[in-house]
Simulated scan of single mutants.
Amino acid sequence: MKKYFILYKSFLLFLTRFLLAYLLLTFVYESYLNQFDAKKFEVDGFTQIVAKQSKDVMIFFNFDSSIILNIKEPGINLFYNQRLMARIIEGCNGLSVIILFISFVIAFSGKIKQTILFIIGGSLLIHILNVFRIALLCVLMYYYPKQQHLLHGVLFPLFIYGVVFMLWIMWVNKFSKYAPKTAKS
């Protein structure tokens, strides 16, 4: 058994760091969410920010958009041309994707400064792309309502997870301690 631990030490260390980071960040996030009473339809602050920013992006591009609190569930209704196009709930705010991203970067950590800067930069990029994703999704669903499942269930998750995957590849190949070292001339 000891032979296998030695043989797979790198993988086991990666897995341990990933799971610890993921569990810790998920615990912190769940603790944050527990401050809000779902029975009273309270919406967490970050989801409200994402909804407002999505509306603001739509308005910036001259799309008639507004938001109001949902009175039937904890969420925010996003309207386009006075038509309800999305219910932005906690799962739409992108934080679970960011937690997954951060956990992976920590598992393949490099120098502390680079790791922190990459986590901040990557998290901001994911957040910004998520806000644009929601805005674009609303507009596309308005014009192509029959494509809702394809847009919401396939293309947009593929896009956001594709970006996260590309960030991971960039991290491992350029910044982590496993990145190939180039010879200095």
Rank of each mutant, 00 (worst) to 15 (best):
G45V: 14
F46K: 09
T26P: 00
L25H: 02
L23K: 07
D44M: 04
K52V: 10
L19A: 10
V43A: 13
L24G: 05
L12W: 10
Y32V: 12
A51T: 04
F41V: 06
V57W: 13
K39F: 10
N34A: 06
V28M: 00
Q35S: 09
L25T: 00
D37F: 00
G45M: 12
Q35K: 13
V50R: 05
Y32C: 11
F61P: 01
N62T: 08
N70V: 04
L19W: 08
D37L: 12
S10C: 08
I49Q: 09
K52H: 11
K39R: 14
I68N: 13
Q35T: 08
V50G: 01
S66Y: 15
F61G: 06
L13T: 14
L69H: 03
F18R: 09
I59K: 15
K39V: 02
D37R: 15
I49V: 13
F36M: 05
F41I: 01
Y29E: 04
F36A: 12
I49H: 03
A51W: 09
A38H: 08
V28H: 00
D56F: 09
D56M: 10
A51F: 07
L12P: 07
L15C: 00
G45C: 05
R17V: 01
Y32D: 00
A38K: 11
Q53C: 06
T16G: 05
I67Y: 07
F60P: 02
F14C: 07
T47M: 06
S31L: 06
I67F: 09
Q53Y: 12
D64Y: 12
F63R: 13
F46I: 14
F41C: 11
A21G: 11
N34H: 12
F63H: 12
A21N: 03
K40H: 11
Q35M: 14
L20E: 05
I59V: 09
E30G: 02
F41E: 12
L25W: 01
D56G: 08
I59M: 14
I67T: 10
L20V: 09
D44T: 00
S65N: 08
D64S: 15
A51L: 14
F41K: 11
A51C: 07
S66I: 07
K39I: 12
